[in-house]
Design a protein around this nucleic acid. Sequence first.
DNA 1: TTATGTGTTGACTAATATTGTCAAAGGTAA
DNA 2: TTACCTTTGACAATATTAGTCAACACATAA
Lengths: 99, 99
Amino acid sequence: MSTVGLQLRELREKAGFSLRKAAVAIDIDVAILSKMERGERKLSKELVLKLAELYKTNSDKLVIDFLSEKVLYELEDEEFGFEALKVAEERMRYNKKSR
Amino acid sequence: MSTVGLQLRELREKAGFSLRKAAVAIDIDVAILSKMERGERKLSKELVLKLAELYKTNSDKLVIDFLSEKVLYELEDEEFGFEALKVAEERMRYNKKSR
DNA sequence: TTATGTGTTGACTAATATTGTCAAAGGTAA
DNA sequence: TTACCTTTGACAATATTAGTCAACACATAA
């Protein structure tokens, strides 16, 4: 399973950016970007969007993966993680209807 | 939809505890418990478990609801929240198998 | 009235977690 | 060497969360 960080790394390389160039382009420190690509620091949705734009890639899948990673991180080692996801899903469906 | 906080409030009243008594029993400040029951402060899983025990209730559903609330909180207002849940579910399935 | 018990509120501090900054290191290639 | 690249770790700055406390309003019993 490839993390969002690693996906971003691949995209960066394909787009021909060095870490420094990419970091400068989105105005963050190189160290941070390096760590984010390798999963040592948390990504933020904002950075994912900025990088997707920089690399001229559609961001939808990246964002979805980013969010699902966040969710899984919260539920990891939880005995009832799966049930919690199911309940969340039901409630999300319900809320969508009633709005 | 009743939140975990409100569920805990009902359970407390059924069990005959005042806010103060319950708070003392699980060793937190009354103010915090009051706020948690009304959703003004975040609950923690530990407190949910302690309260369930105090009220002599099975905690499984409470924990599941607690986790799903956390997840929904993270995904609220997210365009791709539902898709993210789906992906998280797939991955959780996958990880369970491979461990 | 006074006293006691109920829950709520807001201000404040303390503790913890997250982010940002920076310098230095090691690798590779010209 | 020089000029890039990425990684690492230490540190400071900020933001978020958690805990403490006193006071408030309300109800009811003595």
